[in-house]
């Protein structure tokens, strides 16, 4: 598996898109910091970018890689390597190269700016960790879509739809249901609904750092328990982990039973 990972990773590291992605984050980091001169503001803008763009790029990149490396996969399938290794290796190759671009692309400007001297370092590391998780999750989801859809056009369609749903539509439905059922106690519902969408989950995780003052304004006891203590942080982190593990597990499960 490690060998497959290595080759996928090297392969991607040499592809133009990895550079584009890396340079994009690098430029973003520099622009945010050196034109703005304000770490707090940069962190807020970054959050918006991370929860919207990272899933999109993870999905598109993942699905593109899957379809483009179809022949490569078949070459590997005829080799004495278990399927689990082939798919896990490729997945980890893509996910790690994306994570690499993200962390270094954003990390370098922040380090140059003197992040280690600033107290925003915790917020910033949280952002990067969340971004890394979102990359892992959405790449895994994309692999799942690709593995279940031979038709590329359909696969792409589903991938974009998935992103659109998670990033925008889900919150719209969430909001509507909250407003419609506002007479009922909605604490548990809102927290559950948040945990069920990795984008919302990541956003909440970052909110716990950035907007804790506002979150504590709400009276619900469950909310208070969730936001006011470390419970929120722990539960969110565990859910993110589950969100990563489950699609990866399903990918391997399906791959093992699939015909090529």
């Amino acid at each position: 598996m490690l060998k497959i990972l290595k080759y996928s990773f090297y392969d991607l590291m040499r592809s133009r898109w990895s550079y584009v992605y890396f340079l994009f984050y690098l430029m973003l980091g520099f622009v945010l910091l050196f034109l703005n001169n304000d770490v707090s503001k940069a962190v807020i803008t970054l959050m918006n970018i991370i929860i919207v763009l990272v899933p999109l790029i993870g999905t598109i990149f993942g699905i593109m890689y899957c379809y483009n490396s179809k022949e490569f996969t078949e070459l590997l399938l005829a080799q004495p390597i278990p399927r689990r290794s082939i798919f896990l290796g490729q997945y980890l190759g893509v996910a790690s190269s994306l994570t690499f671009s993200l962390i270094f692309g954003l990390g370098i400007p922040f380090v140059l700016y003197g992040l280690f001297m600033s107290d925003a370092i915790f917020d910033f590391s949280l952002l990067l960790v969340t971004g890394a998780f979102l990359t892992l999750i959405f790449t895994a989801l994309a692999f799942n879509i690709a593995i279940s859809n031979e038709n590329r056009i359909m696969g792409f369609g589903y991938a974009v739809l998935l992103w659109l749903f998670m990033a925008v539509i889900y919150d719209g439905l969430f909001l509507i249901s909250l407003v419609i059922f506002e007479e009922y106690p909605l604490d548990n519902f809102s927290i559950a609904a948040t945990l069920l969408n990795p984008v919302d989950l990541s956003r909440t995780l970052i909110l716990l750092k950035l907007d804790i003052s506002a979150l504590l304004g709400y009276t619900g006891a469950v909310f208070k328990q969730f936001f006011g203590t470390n419970a929120g942080l722990v539960i969110s982190a565990v859910m993110l982990l589950l969100w990563t593990i489950f699609p990866v597990w399903r990918m391997v499960y399906v791959a093992k039973r699939k015909d090529f």
């Binding site: 990033a167 909001l175 506002e182 909440t204």
Partner: peptide
């Protein structure tokens, strides 16, 4: 409760 949607793209 909608506070939980703070800073979402929607």
């Amino acid at each position: 409760e909608t506070i939980i949607l703070l800073r979402s793209l929607f």
